[in-house]
Amino acid sequence: MTNLQALYQQVILDHGRNPRHFSQPEHAQIDQVCFNPLCGDKIHVYCDYAVDRKTFQALSFTGDGCAISVASASLMMVALQKKDSAYFYEAFDYLKRLLAGEAVDLSTIDAFSAPEDIANMRRIQVIAGVKNFPMRVKCATCAWHTMAAVVEGGSEPIKTE
């Protein structure tokens, strides 16, 4: 498999074309936008917390972007439904380790114990194909940085460059 094929795998093309949880709610507690001034891409993440103020009760996104940024956002959405901020940080850390080229053993991460979590994280592995394309890493992490801003309670637009 070439680097290009490793990047544009079926999972990426599928989620890029048919992003999951791609909708704008009428009212969202948090509407966090990420804008990349270099390319013009824009992603909104909408989040409602449950009464415990930790669990993501409703989580969705909209935006314009390349296949990588939209697919990465979509895969993140699938993985984070009904999860909480601690779980998000675990998942983001996992993605960062993959992007750094690390071969991560999923069974060593306690947070990913349910079969569904493992399946979601396996799909996220595909995003790591972007590590061979340094200029595109920001596309892959755009939604994740937006989500980090959501969790940190920010409302100012964030930028990736």
Binding site: L4, C39, G40, C66, F133, M135
Partner: peptide
């Protein structure tokens, strides 16, 4: 219609073709 400029530029780059993708400083 289907392919975003950035994906196109990455794929063209893999063929040695250097093009620009984005707003070209003309937002």
């Amino acid at each position: 219609e289907v392919i975003h400029p950035h994906d196109l530029a990455t794929i063209l780059d893999s063929e040695g073709v250097a093009v620009r993708a984005g707003h070209h400083c003309a937002m």
